[in-house]
C-alpha cells in the first residue's frame, strides 16, 4: 500500500499542478493578473504543442547539451576516481595534491567559462571541460572519504590472509567506498546540467541554453518552456539512473 502511494502520490500532485496551470493559463487569469499578452503565458497544452512542432530543432539542441553533460560527467568522474585512488595509495601525493584540488575547485566557473570560450571557441569542448571541472570535486572528496572509511580490523584480517596492498584495495576498500562514491555522483549529476547551461551562456553556437536565450529575446515563450521541460526531464533521468545504478551495484545495504 505504501509502495503504491509512493508512486501514485507524486504523480497525482504533479498532474494537479499542471492541471491548475492549464486552467489558469488558458482562461487568461495569469496574463490578466500580470497585465501581459496571453501568448506570453503558454498553457501546458501549448507547451506540448511547441515540443511536438519544434521536435527537430529541440532534438538537435538537446543532443548538444546532453553530450556536454554526459562527456563532462564522464571526464569529471574519471579525474575524480583517478585522483582519489592515487591519493589513497600515496600519502605524499595526498598532502601535495589535496590543497591544490580544493583551490582548483574554488576557481569561479563564472570567470573561467568565458576565458575558455576565448581560448577554445564556441564548440562543445570548453563546455565539457567546465562540467568536468565542476563535478570532479564532489566525486574525489566523497570517494577519498569512502576509501579512508575502511575498517582497520578488516585490513589486518586481510593481511593475515596474505592479501597484497592491491588485493585489500580491490576487495575491501573499493566496496567500502562505493556508497560514498555514489553520494558524490548524485551531487555531480545534479549540478552538471546547470553548469552545462551556464557554459553555453558564456558563448556557444548550439545547445538548449543558446536556444532559450534566443527564443526569450524573440518572445517565443512557449518554446522556452518546451526547452525547460526537456531540461527537467534530463535532470530527473540522470538522478534516477544514478540511484538505480547504486541499487544495482551496492546490493549489500
Amino acid at each position: 500500500m505504501r509502495a503504491v502511494l509512493r508512486i501514485v502520490l507524486p504523480i497525482a500532485l504533479i498532474a494537479a499542478l499542471v492541471g491548475l496551470w492549464q486552467i489558469a493559463a488558458s482562461t487568461g487569469w495569469i496574463a490578466e493578473a500580470l497585465n501581459l499578452e496571453p501568448f506570453l503565458v503558454p498553457s501546458p497544452a501549448e507547451v506540448g504543442d511547441a515540443i511536438w512542432n519544434n521536435r527537430t530543432l529541440l532534438w538537435e539542441n538537446t543532443w548538444v547539451t546532453l553530450r556536454e553533460i554526459l562527456f563532462g560527467l564522464l571526464a569529471g568522474a574519471a579525474v575524480g576516481v583517478g585522483l582519489a585512488t592515487a591519493m589513497r595509495f600515496s600519502r605524499v601525493l595526498r598532502d601535495a595534491v589535496f590543497p591544490l584540488t580544493v583551490a582548483v575547485q574554488a576557481v569561479p566557473i563564472v570567470v573561467i567559462a568565458p576565458i575558455l570560450v576565448v581560448w577554445f571557441g564556441y564548440g562543445i569542448g570548453p563546455k565539457v571541460v567546465i562540467v568536468a571541472f565542476a563535478v570532479f570535486f564532489p566525486i574525489t572528496v566523497n570517494l577519498l572519504d569512502g576509501l579512508r572509511a575502511v575498517d582497520p580490523e578488516a585490513v589486518k584480517m586481510m593481511r593475515t590472509l596474505d592479501a597484497s596492498r592491491w588485493a585489500t584495495f580491490r576487495r575491501v576498500e573499493v566496496p567500502t567506498a562505493l556508497p560514498y562514491f555514489f553520494s558524490g555522483a548524485k551531487v555531480a549529476v545534479a549540478i552538471a546540467p546547470i553548469v552545462a547551461l551556464f557554459a553555453e551562456l558564456a558563448g556557444s553556437n548550439a545547445g538548449l541554453m543558446r536556444l532559450i536565450v534566443q527564443d526569450n529575446a524573440n518572445l517565443e515563450i512557449a518554446r522556452v518552456f518546451a526547452a525547460t521541460v526537456i531540461l527537467i526531464a534530463i535532470g530527473v533521468l540522470l538522478v534516477g539512473l544514478t540511484a538505480l545504478a547504486q541499487r544495482l551495484v551496492v546490493t549489500w545495504r
Binding site: E153, M157, M158, L161, D162, A163, A167, R171, V172, R253
Partner: peptide
C-alpha cells in the same frame, strides 16, 4: 568480530585467502 565482507557470499568470504594468493 567476524568481519565477514558483506559484499561477498559466504563461499567467497571463506575463499578469500586463496583469492588473495
Amino acid at each position: 568480530r567476524d568481519l565477514l565482507l558483506p559484499w561477498f557470499s559466504a563461499l567467497d568470504n571463506a575463499a578469500l585467502a586463496l583469492r588473495n594468493r
